[in-house]
Amino acid sequence: MTATPLLPDLTARARTTAHARTAPCPCGATTTLTDRPDGTVVRHEDTVAKAHAPHTDPADLTARLTTAARLPGILLPPLDPTPLHLHDRLVTCWPYGIPVDPDDPDAAPWEAAATLLAHLHRTPAPTPLPPMRGPLKAVRAITRLREAGPHPAAAPVLRAWTRLPSWARAEALQPDTTTLCHGDLHLGQLVRHPAPDGPWLLIDVDDLGVGVPAWDLARPAAWYACGLLPPDEWSRFLAAYRAAGGPAVPSTGDPWPALDVPARTLTVQTAALAIVKAVAADRPLDEVERAVVDACDRMGSVPAELAPGSAK
């Protein structure tokens, strides 16, 4: 990870907040969990401090924090719904939760993730929110791909992108402007709180907003469609979402007419970022990256609107 001028002050903020919450504080080492241009996260004992991406809109972030504070059984509540200013960044503080163990895939909480999503999608937004940022992240991935320079795998990815409807490319208003969505669902967005064995909760509100709820199912759907998620795990996830009354897909029957466009878009986004990283590292695509590019090649031959489920 790259050290930044922000990091010492963010570390101090985490320590100060932790000491105010826990007396006496065990005061072990402060750990940097993430240090990237789009977000820096540090932990001190039971407290996490996060510096959000540069140019984050304060009003949008405050609305997202307010939503998390008002939905404590679904989203991990912030310690304060008002962000702080540190250098040129907005900073928020959170209780620490135990994340999903990446080394134990059999214990992945697919049912919990699906149930939380269903509850989120069924809950009216407690305060006005901006659109969820899923489609915008796909646009940024394509922009980065075009800026990365020529690559033999780029053509099928860009071709698949052009076959997506305008709303998926963030060129038009999303068809649903009322449903509360997470915007960037994956297993890294769940923690147990209170630690170590509390209930699972969703974290990371940076993409939270209103939009098409199928977007929150898009990543596991895309992984399944590309052969990267076993059918049993996909079936468990889908069944749990339906059992909890999730509105993104019909309660019975074929889910793919609802999931096809979001799953395709996530596949394109994943492939674009894979190529960008491969170009930056001057290395070939690995097996997983090749799989998502191949899926884009298959998808690019038929418009998404005319072929529900054809990404599979």
Score class of each variant (00 low, 15 high):
T2H: 10
A3M: 10
A3P: 08
L7R: 13
A12K: 05
A14K: 00
A18M: 04
H19L: 06
A20C: 02
P26H: 10
G28N: 11
G28M: 10
T32A: 13
R36Y: 01
V42W: 00
H44R: 05
V48S: 00
A49T: 01
H55R: 13
T56G: 08
D57Y: 08
P58R: 06
T62A: 15
A63V: 09
L71G: 10
L75W: 06
L76C: 08
L79H: 07
L79Q: 12
P83T: 09
R89E: 02
R89K: 03
L90H: 08
T92N: 05
C93H: 11
I98E: 15
I98H: 08
D101M: 04
D101H: 10
P102W: 09
P109M: 07
W110F: 13
A113T: 09
A114N: 08
L117R: 06
L120F: 00
L129N: 03
L129P: 05
P130T: 14
M132P: 00
P135I: 05
A138Q: 11
T143A: 12
T143P: 00
E147R: 14
P156K: 09
V157R: 05
L158Q: 10
R159A: 15
A160H: 09
R169S: 07
A170E: 06
A172L: 10
L173M: 12
L173D: 15
L173Q: 14
Q174N: 04
L180A: 03
C181E: 09
G183F: 07
D184N: 14
H186Q: 07
Q189N: 15
L190P: 00
P196M: 04
I203C: 05
D204S: 07
D206R: 04
D207T: 15
R219H: 13
A221C: 04
A225M: 02
C226D: 13
D232S: 15
W234P: 06
F237M: 15
F237W: 14
A239N: 14
A239C: 11
G245E: 09
D260I: 02
V261G: 09
Q269D: 04
Q269E: 11
A271K: 04
A272H: 06
A272E: 08
V276P: 13
K277Q: 14
V279S: 10
R283K: 13
D286E: 09
E287C: 01
E287Y: 07
V292Q: 02
V293W: 08
A295G: 02
S301R: 13
P303M: 11
E305G: 05
L306R: 12
P308M: 00
P308D: 01
